[in-house]
């Protein structure tokens, strides 16, 4: 299930700027714990951002994306009040969807 994301979406004209902060360990699988045991990889693999059911960004992440990943980008065709949804899926099959409203 994971922890909730923070999503900001702001419209200027018909362009919407989206900023997303996910909550995820993004463990590389290369670190060792105090006992010297390898900490298994745990990272987001795919992420899809939609606005009114239209895909506005489709991303693939590797383990070298920073802990608590951040993304920002802009798309055309959105307006105040529209909902922006973000869904990620990680390498363990876990996934999470959160929604933001364009302001």
């Amino acid at each position: 299930m994971g922890d909730p994301m923070r999503i900001r979406a702001a419209a200027a004209g018909d362009t919407v700027e989206v900023k997303i902060l996910m909550r995820h360990d993004m463990e590389t699988g290369q670190r060792k714990d105090a006992a010297g045991k390898v900490i298994p990889a745990h990272h987001i693999k795919t992420l899809v951002v939609k606005c009114k059911d239209k895909v506005v960004l489709d991303a693939q992440f590797g383990p070298s994306v920073s802990k608590d990943p951040f993304l920002s980008f802009k798309f055309k065709g959105g307006a105040k009040g529209d909902k922006v949804s973000v869904t990620w899926t990680d390498n363990t099959g876990d996934s999470r969807t959160d929604e933001g409203v364009v302001s």
Binding site: T28, D58, A59, F61, G62, S64, S66, F75, G77
Partner: peptide, 25 residues
């Protein structure tokens, strides 16, 4: 110089600006 080179990849649908910011290790 990372153990694997690729960090993140993005498909850009029509209408989305080809300009993206993120953070990497």
């Amino acid at each position: 110089k990372n153990p694997s080179a690729m960090s993140a990849a993005f498909a850009i649908p029509a209408g989305t600006e080809p300009a993206i910011s993120t953070r990497v290790k």
